[in-house]
Design a protein around this nucleic acid. Structure first.
Length: 315
DNA sequence: ATACACGCCTGCTGGC
DNA sequence: TGCCAGCAGGCGTGTA
């Protein structure tokens, strides 16, 4: 599925969705779903609802006939508040999830479609939204919104009433580094208390959200730091530089991901869900470091992998 | 409070 | 040719 050009730095692949990918999905869906009525709900695989609590009621019944008020994201969580209720349609794409917007009469089919929604927008007309997920780590749910203190903060790209509440399941997730209200000083203080490696801390969604294995490796390469370095050993200045690198990596990926309505239909490969990535170390084992040409190494890390330039990122 | 192992899941790849 | 181990890895849970 993933294809990597052997001589270049650009990867066109359906990699694990992290913050930029989820934000591209959000931007792609927002114009069609905002203000739309949910006209049909088809659950093809109940495993796609593992995040849904039956105690709240039946997923289909709660969603059918609802009107979507907004498309909101924090970190890798994306949700759609439902007008006139204290609930939202919540999504997490997991490892391989996609939310694909199609014309209602589109012939596009995917064998991993787990949930299909029909929606009707008052101006743009009818669409369907397919939740496609090969590895089924992703999930949809109807979740109750809980009020949040203005100072406790909340999410990105939201104004007005939707900034006052957050799905229950997202309450423990920290703001992401693109959120203007992200608490950088608080993050720096948290770093100083951590004995584990900086990469582990970057991946901790309760401290700072949106980073996964790919962008953690990329940001660490950008600042020339090994992920095993104890988090508490970073000076405030170095930690700030690392955070800046995370933001740059994210912004770059966002720019490459496309932000248009049409991006949901067709992308660079003509296959929705794919994404162009310019990666320096992730998945480039044995290839030359873009900075010093030393071969990139892959190392075991917490039951997965880390990619690192052994020269630029000395332990 | 913090740290870390584990299970969940499908499809592809490489070695024998 | 077939079989199987290994890999991709986010997140919630459980344990120390």
């Amino acid at each position: 599925m993933d294809s990597i050009e052997p001589t270049g730095f650009t990867v066109r692949a359906a990699l694990v969705p992290e913050l930029p990918e989820v934000e591209v999905v959000r931007r792609g869906l927002a114009p069609a779903v905002t203000g739309s009525l949910v006209t049909s709900v088809e659950v093809r695989d109940v495993r796609a609802l593992t995040r849904h609590s039956a105690a709240l009621g039946d997923f289909e019944r709660l969603l059918m006939g609802a009107r979507i008020a907004a498309a909101v994201r924090r970190g890798k969580f994306l949700w759609f508040p439902l007008s006139g209720t204290d609930t939202a349609l919540l999504s997490h794409l997991g490892m391989s999830g996609q939310l694909l917007l199609r014309r209602i009469d589109s012939a596009e089919e995917n064998r991993h479609t787990r949930v299909r929604l029909g929606i009707e927008h008052p101006e743009h007309g009818e669409f369907r939204v397919d939740f496609v997920d090969q590895r089924t780590f992703g999930s949809l749910a109807i979740d109750r919104m809980i009020e949040v203190d203005a100072t406790a903060g909340y999410s990105s790209d939201v104004t007005g009433q939707w900034a006052r509440s957050i799905p229950h399941q997202v309450a423990h997730i920290a703001r992401d580094p693109l959120d203007p209200a992200f608490d950088e000083k608080g993050w720096l203080r948290a770093l100083a208390r951590r004995t584990s490696g900086i990469k582990t801390v970057l991946l901790d969604q309760t401290l700072l959200s949106g980073i996964g294995n790919i962008y953690a490796d990329e940001a660490l390469w950008a600042v020339g730091m090994a992920g095993t370095r104890p988090a508490a050993s970073l000076s405030r200045g170095v930690a700030s530089n690392l955070l800046a690198a995370v933001r740059i990596v994210f912004e770059k990926a966002l720019a490459e991901g496309g932000t248009s309505f049409d991006a949901q239909y067709v992308n660079v490969n003509g296959q929705a869900g794919y994404f162009a990535h310019s990666l320096s170390v992730y998945g480039r084992t044995g290839e030359p470091c873009p900075r010093c040409a030393t071969p990139i190494v892959r190392e075991p890390f917490a039951n997965r992998s880390s990619h690192r330039c052994p020269r630029c990122q000395r332990r």
